[in-house]
């Protein structure tokens, strides 16, 4: 996403990139960032929790309004849970087994629908789809 942020910024539109992966964001080095120390997949807050969601979006807008240094990453004082034990198992073999297993889904070029009914509802012309 940082690569896209750089392209968009280069067209004259200021960007801010949310992040829950500080090392990756720092490496890609987008124009501005807001870091929240949550597990991946909740970059914009906790589910059905307007307090965390609003805090993150407000911080992002504030960084856009105030940051004057390219590459600024603001780290928010938000935590996922009472302790950080969730970090122990991230991308590490579970259950104490010795053999690592790939927990990601298989790479296939078949569309992966959330519900089977979504497949039936598709408009094949899809005017809102873009293939660059």
């Amino acid at each position: 996403m940082g690569l896209i942020a750089r392209e968009v910024e280069g067209r004259g539109i200021a960007t801010v990139s949310l992040s829950s992966a500080l090392s990756i964001t720092a490496s890609v080095n987008p124009p501005r960032g807001v870091y929240t120390d949550y597990p991946l997949g909740r970059t914009a807050g906790k589910p059905h929790d307007p307090a965390s969601q609003d805090a993150i979006v407000r911080a992002a807008i504030d960084v856009l309004a105030t940051a004057s240094t390219p590459g600024t990453i603001r780290e928010l004082d938000l935590h996922w849970s009472e302790n950080d034990a969730w970090k122990d198992g991230v991308m590490r073999p579970q259950g104490g087994g010795e053999k690592a297993e790939d927990d990601r889904a298989e790479r296939t070029d078949v569309p992966q629908y959330q519900f089977d009914a979504d497949r039936e509802a598709v408009d094949p012309a899809c005017p809102t789809c873009f293939v660059p």
Partner: peptide, 30 residues
């Protein structure tokens, strides 16, 4: 492929944002 992101996807998305005349953009990775 970061090359595909940089050379294909990024310019196409930037085109849309320019066309929408947005002033700023919020980018949300996972």
């Amino acid at each position: 492929s970061s090359r595909k992101v940089r050379d294909q996807l990024a310019p196409a998305i930037a085109d849309r944002l320019v066309s929408d005349e947005v002033d700023v953009a919020l980018m949300v990775p996972v």
